[in-house]
Amino acid sequence: MARFYADEQFPFPVVELLRNLGHDVLTVQEAGKAEQGISDEEVLAFAVSQERAILTINRDDFIRLHRRNDNHFGIIVCTNNRNWEQFAARINEAVVKEESLTGKLIRVVRPVM
């Protein structure tokens, strides 16, 4: 299963569901970084230092960071979805089919109703 680092806006209910699916998820808050007003660059640098893929709903900024440098352990950019179970399932489906997340940008979008 994947090792993730969820940025500070990422919904905690989805973090818990991903953990229940067997993923190792660390949040910015759990890492003690939220109080510091950590920048996106610092989030990515910490994730790289911990060999974790980023989970974020901050799509534009992290897509920009990926385009600047793909030397990371994966960035999963998501469209926010209030259906937490569906949200977690879509992330799980997107990452389990990948052999490795290293250097990849994966988009997980909310299904069109």
Rank of each mutant, 00 (worst) to 15 (best):
Asp24Ser: 13
Val25Glu: 02
Leu26Phe: 02
Leu26Ile: 09
Leu26Cys: 09
Thr27His: 00
Thr27Asn: 00
Gln29Asp: 05
Glu30Arg: 07
Ala31Glu: 12
Ala31Met: 06
Ala31Cys: 02
Gly32Glu: 00
Lys33Phe: 07
Ala34Phe: 06
Glu35Phe: 11
Gln36Met: 01
Gly37Asn: 12
Ser39Asn: 06
Asp40Ala: 13
Asp40Arg: 10
Asp40Ser: 12
Asp40Asn: 15
Glu41Ala: 12
Glu41Cys: 00
Val43Asn: 12
Val43Pro: 02
Leu44Arg: 05
Leu44Thr: 05
Leu44Phe: 03
Leu44His: 03
Ala45Cys: 07
Phe46Val: 02
Phe46Trp: 11
Val48His: 03
Val48Leu: 02
Ser49Ala: 10
Gln50Met: 04
Gln50Glu: 10
Ala53Pro: 09
Ile54Thr: 01
Ile54Asp: 01
Ile54Cys: 01
Thr56Tyr: 02
Thr56Glu: 04
Ile57Pro: 07
Asn58Tyr: 04
Arg59Pro: 00
Phe62Val: 05
Arg64Phe: 05
Arg64Trp: 09
Leu65Tyr: 11
Leu65His: 06
Leu65Lys: 11
Arg67Gly: 14
Arg68Gly: 15
Arg68Val: 12
Asn69Val: 10
Asn69Cys: 15
Asp70Phe: 04
Asp70Arg: 14
Asp70Gln: 11
Asn71Leu: 13
Asn71Gln: 15
Asn71Trp: 10
Asn71Val: 11
Phe73Met: 14
Gly74Leu: 08
Gly74Ser: 12
Ile75Asp: 03
Ile75Thr: 10
Ile75Met: 09
Ile76Pro: 01
Val77Pro: 05
Val77Asp: 10
Cys78Lys: 07
Cys78Thr: 08
Cys78Gly: 09
Thr79Gly: 13
Thr79Cys: 04
Asn80Met: 14
Asn80Tyr: 15
Asn81Lys: 03
Arg82Ile: 14
Asn83Ala: 14
Trp84Lys: 11
Glu85Asn: 13
Glu85Ile: 11
Glu85Pro: 06
Gln86Thr: 01
Gln86Asp: 12
Gln86Asn: 07
Phe87Pro: 07
Phe87Ile: 10
Phe87Thr: 05
Phe87Glu: 09
Ala88Pro: 02
Arg90Ser: 07
Arg90Phe: 01
Arg90Cys: 00
Asn92His: 15
Glu93Val: 03
Glu93Gly: 09
Glu93Asn: 13
Ala94Leu: 09
Ala94Glu: 06
Val96Leu: 03
Val96Gln: 10
Val96His: 05
Lys97Tyr: 12
Glu98Asn: 07
Glu99Thr: 13
Leu101Trp: 06
Leu101Arg: 04
Thr102Ala: 09
Gly103Thr: 09
Gly103Leu: 12
Gly103Lys: 12
Gly103Glu: 09
Leu105Asp: 08
Ile106Cys: 06
Ile106Lys: 12
Arg107Gly: 04
Arg107Leu: 12
Val108Ala: 06
Arg110Phe: 04
Pro111Glu: 04
Val112His: 00
Val112Cys: 00
